[in-house]
């Protein structure tokens, strides 16, 4: 082998430098800094002074009623938004996967949230949620249903943010499920139909099981993203609900860091680290599921490919 000069050997490193530098500066450094901050008690951001080192911040945060409320809100939000949006998305994706009329209309309608600014859309929803002039309660009224006071009562606030959250998360979910559906060989449906299976049986005995890896993936991804919910609160209520009742974990971090005076950097950091660990666990779970589904699907890919080659 020809001996490379020193410069030749470090050349790849030079090409990578901008990337390594930016990741270090904007991703790694902040994470490390937040972890450090979470163990420093009475930390002052500007002077860098602190009064002690330990788990004090974690203790305070865990015992903080606002954080507990934030946790409970976040869990309730995740537990409502994820299953409902997943179920809705499965139904919608199955419909979109069929050759239905007005397909392009539905596609546009369902994918609208993806291409619009969430802030602008949030404001639009704020008008729709309006108790007096909002279209939602108007429509509910037509069906004889007394809609909740979405924006003016604490309970209504929660429902509003759940509805908005489901709507916002649908497009990505549908796209993922659609791609999963398109991986299912239509021959399975033909085989089942020839044997006399009806739509519902085909859906539950064939479509859903074959879609299971994608469904699991979607649930995990959506759990992670809904766990981090907070920016939806601003366009709807300018804050965590009308009665400060809609604290979420991320909003709590923002609040301790930005709104509290003086700011409790240590609390925010401790809460952030706990969130980081939670999300990390789910990310690992997602990787495991992806590896598993790739293995499951590997079989099919080969079979379909062989089938195609035969038909050439």
């Amino acid at each position: 082998m020809i001996k490379k000069s020193f410069f030749e050997r470090i050349k790849p490193l030079l090409y990578l430098l901008p990337f390594i530098a930016s990741v270090t500066l904007f991703t790694l450094y902040p994470i490390v800094n937040v972890i450090r901050m979470s163990f420093l008690e009475g930390y002052k951001y500007l002077s860098g002074a602190y009064t002690g080192v330990g788990l004090g911040n974690y203790q305070k945060v865990i015992n903080d009623p606002f954080f507990r409320q934030a946790l409970s809100n976040t869990f309730r939000y995740v537990l409502l938004v994820v299953p409902i949006s997943t179920a809705l998305a499965i139904v919608i994706a199955t419909m979109l996967n069929q050759k239905i009329k007005f397909q392009s209309f539905f596609q546009t309608a369902y994918f609208l949230p993806m291409v619009t600014s969430s802030l602008a859309v949030g404001l639009a929803w704020r008008f729709m949620f309006n108790d007096k002039v909002g279209i939602l309660n108007y429509v509910l009224n037509i069906f004889g249903i007394q809609g909740p006071s979405w924006l003016t009562t604490p309970a209504g606030n929660f429902i509003a943010v759940v509805v908005f959250g489901i709507w916002a998360i649908l497009p990505n979910t549908i796209i993922l499920l659609l791609s999963g559906l398109q991986n299912i060989d239509p021959l399975y449906y033909t085989a089942a139909k020839v044997d006399g299976a009806k739509t519902l049986r085909i859906f539950f005995r064939i479509t859903v099981p074959l879609l299971a890896p994608t469904i699991m993936l979607v649930i995990i991804i959506n759990t992670i993203s809904t766990f981090k919910m907070y920016h939806e609160l601003f366009p709807l209520f300018n804050g965590p609900g009308i009665a400060y009742n809609l604290f979420t974990v991320v909003y709590y971090i923002y609040y301790e860091f930005r709104v509290m005076s003086p700011p409790k950097y240590g609390y925010a950091a401790a809460a952030a680290v706990m969130l980081l660990i939670t999300v990390f666990i789910f990310t690992m779970l997602q990787r495991a599921v992806q590896a598993w589904s790739r293995k499951e699907r590997g079989e099919d890919v080969k079979k379909v490919k062989r089938h195609r080659d035969q038909n050439k």
Binding site: D195, P209, A212, K303, R306
Partner: peptide
């Protein structure tokens, strides 16, 4: 329609349900 004809069908690539 197919299901009323009382036929059995075998496909080139088998079309066995992979999850069953």
């Amino acid at each position: 329609s197919s299901e009323k004809r009382g036929i059995g069908l075998v496909f080139q690539n088998y079309a066995l349900y992979p999850h069953m």
